[in-house]
Amino acid sequence: MQSTTRKPRLAAIEYIRGISMMGVIGIHIGSQYIMNPAANIHLVALLETVTRFSVPIFFFISAFGLFYNLNINEPFDFKSFTKRRLKTVLIPYLAWSLFYLLHDGLLYGVGFPDPLHLLSILFFGNAKYQLYFMVILLWFYLLMPLWIAIVRRLTMPKLAVLLALQIAFDYWSSFSTGFNLYVYSLPDSSLLKPFLMYRLNYWVLHYFFIFLLGGYLSVHSQQFMAFMKARLRGLTCFFFFTLGGLLTYYYEKIFFDGYTPMEAINTAHQLCPWGIMYTIAASLFFFAVFTYVKFPPALSQALHLLGKHSYFAYLAHPLFITYIGLMIQHKGLVMTAPLIIGFYWGALLLSLLAATACRRLGTAVPLLNKLTIGVYPKK
Rank of each mutant, 00 (worst) to 15 (best):
Q2W: 15
S3Q: 14
R9N: 12
I19K: 09
I19C: 10
M22S: 12
M22Y: 10
M22C: 14
I27M: 12
S31N: 13
P37D: 04
A38I: 09
L43K: 05
E48V: 09
V50R: 06
T51K: 04
T51M: 13
P56A: 04
F59I: 02
I61A: 05
G65M: 12
L70V: 04
N71E: 07
N73L: 10
E74P: 06
F78G: 00
F78A: 05
S80T: 11
R84P: 03
K87N: 08
T88S: 13
I91M: 03
I91N: 03
A95L: 06
W96E: 00
W96K: 00
L98V: 10
F99L: 09
Y100E: 06
D104E: 10
Y108N: 13
L116H: 10
F123H: 02
G125H: 00
K128M: 14
Y129N: 10
L131F: 05
I136P: 01
F140H: 04
M144S: 00
A149H: 08
A160G: 08
L165Q: 09
P187A: 03
D188F: 10
S189H: 11
L192R: 06
P194M: 00
L196A: 01
L196H: 01
L196P: 00
M197K: 15
Y198W: 13
L200I: 11
H206S: 14
F209P: 00
G214C: 02
Y216N: 01
Y216Q: 02
S221V: 12
Q222I: 15
Q223M: 15
A226H: 13
A226R: 13
M228W: 07
K229P: 11
R233N: 15
R233P: 01
L235M: 06
F239V: 01
F240A: 00
T242F: 08
Y249W: 15
Y251N: 07
Y259D: 09
T260N: 01
A268V: 01
A268R: 08
L271D: 15
P273V: 03
W274S: 09
G275Q: 06
Y278S: 01
I280F: 03
A288N: 02
T291Q: 15
F295R: 00
L299I: 14
S300F: 02
Q301R: 12
Q301M: 10
H304M: 05
H309S: 07
Y311N: 06
Y314W: 09
A316P: 07
P318E: 04
L319P: 11
F320C: 07
H330A: 15
K331Q: 13
G332F: 07
L333A: 14
V334K: 08
T336W: 09
A337L: 13
A337V: 09
P338C: 08
I340P: 06
I341N: 07
W345Y: 12
A347G: 11
L349E: 04
L350D: 05
L350Q: 02
S351R: 01
S351A: 07
A355H: 12
R360I: 13
L368R: 03
V375R: 08
Y376H: 03
K378F: 11
K379F: 09
